[in-house]
């Protein structure tokens, strides 16, 4: 019974984290057709910025509660700055190029950003564990569980709904949806596609940075933390269907529970759990669970 509780909680908590790191990737792909490898670097930047900002904050002896507000501010500012620099500086010059080529562009960006992070922060570990310990733990069915992890679940739900709301209800969001449906017609109807792209990329980047910011208190912020994230995020969005936001949520749940199940029941398969799910889903539904139907060119 305790094992069952543990699997439910662990699966949920891991799924929430996966959703946070993957949803920005799927948004950017859906709108811009860019499979962004630099997403992992954005995640790492988020973690580093959070660690530095909170490090300064705590060293001033300020009250712990407002640290969470600072984390939010840090994520927004860092995401916006990094996202716009990359979009304006590099990607803007390359729109309309081959999809695979864009993957390589973002791969090159990833390499550059990885070393940039290393040059700014060095290779030593950074720690900000105070937020993780702030709320302590509660016992659920005899199993101690960090409240912070449960808050990440809440955050993932809130951010998912907010994103959905933005896309469906706001003016900019509806323009974005129009661009997804047909880039050329949208442009003809007077939508500023480049602006839509810039906004989308910034939002996607903010999501990646948020992922890094909320993870920073749980880990040692060290070089290389972005690498594993990319591949996990890819798997999640491919399972759900590239470019679909509900797909990213479902993909995260699938992958999250696959890992939780394997850790508790068959730890030796943990390494393949996520790829196995991905392979099985693609074998049955080649375009992912929530893929849009695409037209055939004749």
């Amino acid at each position: 019974m305790q094992k069952f509780t543990a699997i439910m909680l662990d699966g949920m908590s891991y799924a929430a984290w996966l959703f946070l790191v993957a949803v920005g990737l799927t948004l950017i792909y859906g709108v811009m057709r860019i499979l962004n490898i630099a997403h992992g670097a954005f995640y790492a930047i988020g973690a580093y910025v959070c660690a530095s900002a909170l490090g300064v904050y705590y060293s001033l002896g300020l009250p712990g509660v407002f640290a969470f507000a600072l984390m939010g501010v840090v994520a927004l500012v860092a995401g916006l700055i990094v996202g716009l620099i990359v979009e304006r500086g590099v990607l803007r010059n390359l729109y309309g190029r081959d999809e695979v080529l864009m993957v390589l562009v973002t791969y090159a960006l990833f390499l550059i950003l990885e070393d940039a992070v290393k040059l700014i922060w060095g290779v030593k570990s950074y720690f900000v564990y105070q937020p993780y310990a702030h709320f302590g733990f509660i016992e659920i069915g005899g199993l101690p569980y960090q409240v912070y992890d449960l808050l990440i679940v809440a955050l993932a739900v809130v951010m998912g709904i907010a994103l959905w709301f933005w896309l469906e209800r706001s003016r900019m969001g509806r323009m974005t949806t129009a661009v997804v449906a047909d880039r050329e017609i949208s442009a003809a109807m007077g939508i500023n596609v480049k602006r839509v792209f810039a906004t989308t990329f910034a939002i996607g980047t903010i999501f990646a940075v948020v992922g890094g910011v909320v993870t920073a208190p749980k880990i040692a912020v060290t070089p290389g933390i972005g690498v594993e994230v990319i591949i996990l995020a890819f798997a999640v969005v491919v399972i759900g269907g590239l470019g679909s936001i509900p797909g990213a949520a479902i993909g995260a749940v699938f992958a999250g529970y696959a890992r939780a199940l394997s850790v508790h029941l068959a730890p030796e398969f943990e390494l393949f759990a996520i790829y196995a799910v991905m392979a099985v889903v693609l074998a049955i539904r080649p375009h992912g669970l929530f893929a849009r139907a695409s037209g055939r060119k004749i």
């Binding site: 305790q2 094992k3 543990a6 909680l9 662990d10 699966g11 908590s13 891991y14 984290w17 199993l143 101690p144 569980y145 960090q146 992890d149 993870t215 749980k218 880990i219 040692a220 290389g224 933390i225 690498v227 594993e228 996990l232 890992r259 939780a260 850790v263 508790h264 730890p267 030796e268 943990e270 390494l271």
Partner: peptide, 22 residues
């Protein structure tokens, strides 16, 4: 009673900690 082999460098050990606790 438990043999956990998480993938190297993932940094998320919530599930492993639960499995060890249970």
């Amino acid at each position: 009673v438990s043999e956990q082999f998480p993938q190297v460098y993932v940094g998320q050990y919530g599930a492993e900690a639960s499995a060890l606790l249970t």
